[in-house]
Protein backbone atom coordinates (compact mmCIF):
# COMPACT_ATOMS: atom_id res chain seq x y z
CA UNK A 1 0.00 0.00 0.00
CA UNK A 2 1.36 3.44 -0.88
CA UNK A 3 1.78 6.05 1.86
CA UNK A 4 -1.21 8.01 0.54
CA UNK A 5 -3.41 4.94 0.83
CA UNK A 6 -2.08 4.28 4.30
CA UNK A 7 -2.90 7.78 5.45
CA UNK A 8 -6.33 7.50 3.89
CA UNK A 9 -6.95 4.19 5.63
CA UNK A 10 -5.83 5.70 8.93
CA UNK A 11 -8.27 8.57 8.44
CA UNK A 12 -11.01 6.09 7.50
CA UNK A 13 -10.43 4.11 10.71
CA UNK A 14 -10.55 7.27 12.78
CA UNK A 15 -13.84 8.20 11.19
CA UNK A 16 -15.20 4.75 12.02
CA UNK A 17 -14.05 5.18 15.62
CA UNK A 18 -15.97 8.44 15.67
CA UNK A 19 -19.15 6.54 14.81
CA UNK A 20 -19.22 7.43 11.12
CA UNK A 21 -21.13 5.02 8.89
CA UNK A 22 -20.02 3.99 5.43
CA UNK A 23 -22.26 4.02 2.34
CA UNK A 24 -21.94 1.89 -0.79
CA UNK A 25 -20.29 4.52 -2.97
CA UNK A 26 -18.04 6.02 -0.28
CA UNK A 27 -14.33 5.42 -0.58
CA UNK A 28 -13.25 2.47 1.54
CA UNK A 29 -9.99 0.56 1.97
CA UNK A 30 -9.78 -2.60 -0.11
CA UNK A 31 -9.45 -4.66 3.05
CA UNK A 32 -12.69 -3.21 4.44
CA UNK A 33 -14.53 -4.02 1.24
CA UNK A 34 -13.03 -7.51 1.16
CA UNK A 35 -14.10 -8.27 4.76
CA UNK A 36 -17.62 -7.02 4.08
CA UNK A 37 -17.94 -9.01 0.89
CA UNK A 38 -16.69 -12.15 2.63
CA UNK A 39 -19.07 -11.72 5.58
CA UNK A 40 -22.17 -10.66 3.65
CA UNK A 41 -21.72 -13.32 0.99
CA UNK A 42 -21.46 -15.96 3.70
CA UNK A 43 -24.58 -14.57 5.34
CA UNK A 44 -26.54 -14.35 2.07
CA UNK A 45 -25.61 -17.82 0.86
CA UNK A 46 -26.36 -19.31 4.28
CA UNK A 47 -29.87 -17.83 4.11
CA UNK A 48 -30.32 -19.15 0.59
CA UNK A 49 -28.99 -22.63 1.38
CA UNK A 50 -30.88 -22.44 4.67
CA UNK A 51 -34.20 -22.56 2.82
CA UNK A 52 -33.52 -26.14 1.74
CA UNK A 53 -33.46 -28.09 5.04
CA UNK A 54 -36.69 -26.50 6.24
CA UNK A 55 -38.61 -26.54 2.98
CA UNK A 56 -38.40 -30.32 3.10
CA UNK A 57 -40.97 -30.06 5.90
CA UNK A 58 -43.43 -27.66 4.29
CA UNK A 59 -45.66 -30.37 2.80
CA UNK A 60 -45.25 -32.60 5.84
CA UNK A 61 -45.91 -29.91 8.45
CA UNK A 62 -48.69 -31.42 10.54
CA UNK A 63 -51.50 -28.89 10.17
CA UNK A 64 -52.62 -26.32 7.61
CA UNK A 65 -51.59 -23.60 10.05
CA UNK A 66 -48.09 -25.07 10.45
CA UNK A 67 -47.80 -25.51 6.69
CA UNK A 68 -48.66 -21.85 6.17
CA UNK A 69 -46.36 -20.58 8.89
CA UNK A 70 -43.43 -22.71 7.78
CA UNK A 71 -43.90 -21.59 4.20
CA UNK A 72 -43.89 -17.98 5.40
CA UNK A 73 -40.78 -18.61 7.43
CA UNK A 74 -38.82 -20.23 4.62
CA UNK A 75 -40.03 -17.49 2.28
CA UNK A 76 -38.57 -14.95 4.70
CA UNK A 77 -35.23 -16.79 4.60
CA UNK A 78 -35.20 -16.55 0.82
CA UNK A 79 -36.12 -12.90 1.22
CA UNK A 80 -33.22 -12.36 3.61
CA UNK A 81 -30.93 -13.97 1.08
CA UNK A 82 -32.29 -11.52 -1.48
CA UNK A 83 -31.73 -8.44 0.72
CA UNK A 84 -28.20 -9.54 1.55
CA UNK A 85 -27.16 -10.57 -1.91
CA UNK A 86 -28.13 -7.11 -3.18
CA UNK A 87 -25.89 -5.53 -0.54
CA UNK A 88 -23.09 -7.90 -1.56
CA UNK A 89 -23.64 -7.19 -5.26
CA UNK A 90 -23.25 -3.44 -4.76
CA UNK A 91 -19.96 -4.07 -2.97
CA UNK A 92 -18.77 -6.45 -5.67
CA UNK A 93 -19.76 -4.19 -8.56
CA UNK A 94 -16.39 -2.38 -8.78
CA UNK A 95 -14.83 -5.79 -9.46
CA UNK A 96 -17.39 -6.42 -12.20
CA UNK A 97 -18.98 -9.23 -10.20
CA UNK A 98 -22.57 -10.05 -9.28
CA UNK A 99 -24.73 -12.82 -7.81
CA UNK A 100 -23.87 -15.15 -10.68
CA UNK A 101 -20.28 -15.20 -9.46
CA UNK A 102 -21.48 -16.00 -5.97
CA UNK A 103 -23.50 -18.94 -7.25
CA UNK A 104 -20.60 -20.17 -9.39
CA UNK A 105 -18.31 -20.00 -6.37
CA UNK A 106 -20.87 -21.89 -4.32
CA UNK A 107 -21.11 -24.66 -6.90
CA UNK A 108 -17.32 -24.83 -7.24
CA UNK A 109 -16.90 -25.18 -3.48
CA UNK A 110 -15.29 -21.74 -3.10
CA UNK A 111 -18.21 -20.18 -1.23
CA UNK A 112 -19.00 -21.61 2.21
CA UNK A 113 -22.29 -21.59 4.11
CA UNK A 114 -23.14 -22.16 7.77
CA UNK A 115 -22.53 -25.59 9.29
CA UNK A 116 -26.14 -26.11 10.39
CA UNK A 117 -27.42 -26.14 6.82
CA UNK A 118 -25.25 -29.13 5.89
CA UNK A 119 -27.15 -31.40 8.27
CA UNK A 120 -30.14 -33.70 7.83
CA UNK A 121 -33.58 -32.80 9.17
CA UNK A 122 -35.08 -36.23 9.80
CA UNK A 123 -38.14 -35.33 11.90
CA UNK A 124 -40.69 -32.59 12.42
CA UNK A 125 -38.98 -31.87 15.74
CA UNK A 126 -35.77 -31.07 13.87
CA UNK A 127 -37.70 -28.58 11.77
CA UNK A 128 -39.07 -26.97 14.93
CA UNK A 129 -35.68 -26.99 16.58
CA UNK A 130 -34.15 -25.13 13.64
CA UNK A 131 -36.76 -22.41 14.01
CA UNK A 132 -36.22 -22.07 17.73
CA UNK A 133 -32.57 -22.82 18.44
CA UNK A 134 -30.81 -22.21 15.12
CA UNK A 135 -32.69 -18.99 14.39
CA UNK A 136 -32.17 -18.11 18.04
CA UNK A 137 -28.43 -18.34 17.45
CA UNK A 138 -28.67 -16.41 14.21
CA UNK A 139 -30.54 -13.54 15.82
CA UNK A 140 -27.81 -13.17 18.44
CA UNK A 141 -25.20 -12.77 15.70
CA UNK A 142 -27.42 -10.49 13.65
CA UNK A 143 -28.37 -8.34 16.62
CA UNK A 144 -24.68 -7.77 17.25
CA UNK A 145 -24.09 -6.84 13.60
CA UNK A 146 -26.93 -4.26 13.62
CA UNK A 147 -24.60 -1.67 15.09
CA UNK A 148 -21.97 -2.21 12.40
CA UNK A 149 -20.22 0.49 10.40
CA UNK A 150 -21.52 -0.40 6.93
CA UNK A 151 -24.92 1.28 6.69
CA UNK A 152 -26.45 -0.71 3.78
CA UNK A 153 -25.77 -3.98 5.61
CA UNK A 154 -27.26 -2.67 8.85
CA UNK A 155 -30.38 -1.49 6.99
CA UNK A 156 -30.87 -4.97 5.55
CA UNK A 157 -30.22 -6.48 8.97
CA UNK A 158 -32.82 -4.31 10.59
CA UNK A 159 -35.50 -5.76 8.33
CA UNK A 160 -34.12 -9.24 8.84
CA UNK A 161 -34.05 -9.03 12.63
CA UNK A 162 -37.64 -7.77 12.68
CA UNK A 163 -38.76 -10.80 10.71
CA UNK A 164 -36.63 -13.17 12.77
CA UNK A 165 -38.75 -12.29 15.78
CA UNK A 166 -41.58 -14.19 14.09
CA UNK A 167 -39.23 -17.04 13.14
CA UNK A 168 -38.14 -17.69 16.69
CA UNK A 169 -41.66 -17.59 18.04
CA UNK A 170 -42.79 -19.87 15.24
CA UNK A 171 -40.02 -22.30 16.23
CA UNK A 172 -40.78 -21.97 19.94
CA UNK A 173 -44.44 -22.60 19.23
CA UNK A 174 -43.67 -25.87 17.42
CA UNK A 175 -41.28 -27.01 20.14
CA UNK A 176 -43.64 -26.00 22.93
CA UNK A 177 -46.41 -28.07 21.36
CA UNK A 178 -44.07 -31.06 21.27
CA UNK A 179 -42.92 -30.45 24.85
CA UNK A 180 -46.53 -30.37 26.03
CA UNK A 181 -47.56 -33.24 23.79
CA UNK A 182 -47.55 -37.01 23.97
CA UNK A 183 -44.60 -39.07 25.19
CA UNK A 184 -43.79 -39.74 21.54
CA UNK A 185 -43.74 -36.04 20.73
CA UNK A 186 -41.49 -35.28 23.70
CA UNK A 187 -39.15 -38.10 22.72
CA UNK A 188 -39.03 -36.76 19.18
CA UNK A 189 -37.87 -33.38 20.46
CA UNK A 190 -35.34 -34.85 22.88
CA UNK A 191 -33.80 -36.88 20.06
CA UNK A 192 -33.61 -33.82 17.85
CA UNK A 193 -31.94 -31.84 20.63
CA UNK A 194 -29.38 -34.59 21.20
CA UNK A 195 -28.70 -34.68 17.49
CA UNK A 196 -28.35 -30.91 17.08
CA UNK A 197 -26.52 -29.83 20.23
CA UNK A 198 -22.96 -30.18 18.89
CA UNK A 199 -23.94 -28.27 15.74
CA UNK A 200 -25.46 -25.51 17.88
CA UNK A 201 -22.21 -25.25 19.84
CA UNK A 202 -20.38 -24.98 16.51
CA UNK A 203 -22.70 -22.26 15.18
CA UNK A 204 -20.68 -19.27 16.38
CA UNK A 205 -17.33 -20.72 15.29
CA UNK A 206 -14.33 -21.76 17.40
CA UNK A 207 -13.55 -19.91 20.62
CA UNK A 208 -10.79 -17.35 20.27
CA UNK A 209 -9.08 -18.17 23.58
CA UNK A 210 -7.75 -14.64 23.72
CA UNK A 211 -6.35 -14.71 20.20
CA UNK A 212 -8.89 -13.46 17.70
CA UNK A 213 -8.58 -15.05 14.28
CA UNK A 214 -7.46 -12.80 11.45
CA UNK A 215 -10.91 -12.11 9.96
CA UNK A 216 -12.38 -11.45 13.36
CA UNK A 217 -9.59 -9.05 14.25
CA UNK A 218 -10.22 -7.21 11.00
CA UNK A 219 -14.00 -7.11 11.32
CA UNK A 220 -13.72 -5.97 14.92
CA UNK A 221 -11.23 -3.25 13.95
CA UNK A 222 -13.48 -2.13 11.10
CA UNK A 223 -16.39 -2.01 13.52
CA UNK A 224 -18.35 -4.42 11.36
CA UNK A 225 -18.79 -6.69 14.35
CA UNK A 226 -18.44 -5.90 18.02
CA UNK A 227 -18.25 -9.27 19.77
CA UNK A 228 -16.18 -12.41 19.55
CA UNK A 229 -17.48 -15.89 18.76
CA UNK A 230 -17.15 -16.91 22.38
CA UNK A 231 -18.99 -13.86 23.70
CA UNK A 232 -21.88 -14.68 21.38
CA UNK A 233 -21.92 -18.34 22.40
CA UNK A 234 -21.92 -17.38 26.09
CA UNK A 235 -24.88 -15.11 25.51
CA UNK A 236 -26.66 -17.90 23.64
CA UNK A 237 -26.11 -20.39 26.45
CA UNK A 238 -27.39 -17.92 29.03
CA UNK A 239 -30.55 -17.37 27.05
CA UNK A 240 -31.38 -20.89 25.90
CA UNK A 241 -30.03 -23.39 28.42
CA UNK A 242 -32.52 -22.36 31.14
CA UNK A 243 -35.39 -22.44 28.66
CA UNK A 244 -34.53 -25.88 27.32
CA UNK A 245 -34.14 -27.20 30.86
CA UNK A 246 -37.37 -25.57 32.06
CA UNK A 247 -39.22 -27.71 29.51
CA UNK A 248 -37.61 -30.76 31.12
CA UNK A 249 -35.29 -31.66 28.25
CA UNK A 250 -31.75 -32.89 28.74
CA UNK A 251 -28.87 -31.15 27.02
CA UNK A 252 -26.43 -33.86 25.99
CA UNK A 253 -23.41 -32.33 27.71
CA UNK A 254 -22.81 -33.49 31.29
CA UNK A 255 -20.05 -30.92 31.72
CA UNK A 256 -22.29 -27.96 30.89
CA UNK A 257 -22.45 -25.55 33.82
CA UNK A 258 -22.50 -21.89 34.68
CA UNK A 259 -20.16 -20.34 37.20
CA UNK A 260 -22.47 -18.72 39.79
CA UNK A 261 -20.13 -15.76 40.25
CA UNK A 262 -18.72 -14.97 36.83
CA UNK A 263 -21.83 -16.32 35.02
CA UNK A 264 -19.45 -17.89 32.49
CA UNK A 265 -20.46 -21.20 30.96
CA UNK A 266 -18.15 -24.14 30.62
CA UNK A 267 -19.17 -26.71 28.07
CA UNK A 268 -17.89 -29.66 26.11
CA UNK A 269 -16.01 -28.38 23.04
CA UNK A 270 -17.55 -29.79 19.89
CA UNK A 271 -15.25 -31.51 17.42
CA UNK A 272 -13.81 -28.51 15.62
CA UNK A 273 -12.10 -30.77 13.06
CA UNK A 274 -15.55 -32.01 12.16
CA UNK A 275 -16.81 -28.43 11.93
CA UNK A 276 -14.06 -27.62 9.43
CA UNK A 277 -14.97 -30.69 7.42
CA UNK A 278 -18.67 -29.78 7.42
CA UNK A 279 -18.21 -26.23 6.20
CA UNK A 280 -15.81 -27.55 3.56
CA UNK A 281 -18.91 -29.29 2.13
CA UNK A 282 -18.19 -32.66 3.71
CA UNK A 283 -21.31 -32.64 5.90
CA UNK A 284 -23.92 -35.39 5.64
CA UNK A 285 -26.22 -33.36 3.36
CA UNK A 286 -23.71 -30.96 1.76
CA UNK A 287 -23.50 -32.71 -1.58
CA UNK A 288 -27.24 -33.34 -1.85
CA UNK A 289 -28.18 -29.73 -1.06
CA UNK A 290 -25.55 -28.32 -3.40
CA UNK A 291 -26.87 -30.61 -6.09
CA UNK A 292 -30.40 -29.42 -5.49
CA UNK A 293 -29.27 -25.84 -5.86
CA UNK A 294 -27.01 -26.57 -8.85
CA UNK A 295 -29.72 -28.45 -10.75
CA UNK A 296 -32.45 -25.90 -10.17
CA UNK A 297 -30.09 -23.05 -11.00
CA UNK A 298 -28.99 -24.64 -14.28
CA UNK A 299 -32.53 -25.57 -15.29
CA UNK A 300 -33.77 -22.07 -14.51
CA UNK A 301 -31.15 -20.41 -16.70
CA UNK A 302 -33.57 -20.02 -19.61
CA UNK A 303 -35.93 -18.06 -17.34
CA UNK A 304 -33.19 -15.63 -16.40
CA UNK A 305 -32.40 -15.40 -20.12
CA UNK A 306 -36.04 -14.40 -20.70
CA UNK A 307 -35.68 -11.70 -18.06
CA UNK A 308 -32.52 -10.39 -19.71
CA UNK A 309 -34.15 -10.46 -23.16
CA UNK A 310 -37.15 -8.58 -21.77
CA UNK A 311 -34.90 -5.92 -20.32
CA UNK A 312 -33.21 -5.37 -23.69
CA UNK A 313 -36.57 -5.19 -25.44
CA UNK A 314 -37.89 -2.42 -23.17
Amino acid sequence: MNPDGEARTQEFLERLDGGHLVEADDWMPDAYRAELVRLIRLHAVSEIMGTLPEKEWVPRAPTLYRKLALMAKVQDEAGHGQLLIRVAEDLMAPRGENREHIMEDLFAGRQKFHNVFHLPVPTWADAGLIGWLVDGAAIITQGMLLGGSYAPYTRALRRIVEEEAFHIQHGESICMALAEGTAGQRAMFQEALTRWWPALMMFFGPPEDGAALSHQAATLRFRIRSKTNEELRQRYLSKYVPRIRSLGFIIPDPTLQQDPDTKAWTYQQPDWQQWRAIIANHGPRSAARLNLRRTSYAEGQWVRDVMAATRKAV
Binding site: T51, L52, K55, V58, P59, A78, G79, Q82, Q301, V303
Partner: peptide, 15 residues
Protein backbone atom coordinates in the same frame (compact mmCIF):
# COMPACT_ATOMS: atom_id res chain seq x y z
CA UNK B 1 -46.25 -24.41 -5.71
CA UNK B 2 -44.71 -24.78 -2.26
CA UNK B 3 -42.30 -27.38 -3.58
CA UNK B 4 -40.71 -24.60 -5.66
CA UNK B 5 -39.71 -22.81 -2.47
CA UNK B 6 -35.98 -22.19 -2.55
CA UNK B 7 -35.71 -23.52 -6.10
CA UNK B 8 -37.38 -20.90 -8.33
CA UNK B 9 -35.24 -19.61 -11.21
CA UNK B 10 -34.70 -16.15 -9.76
CA UNK B 11 -34.31 -15.23 -6.11
CA UNK B 12 -36.86 -12.41 -6.16
CA UNK B 13 -39.32 -14.64 -7.99
CA UNK B 14 -38.86 -17.33 -5.37
CA UNK B 15 -40.21 -14.96 -2.74
Amino acid sequence: AGEWLGLAPHLEEDV
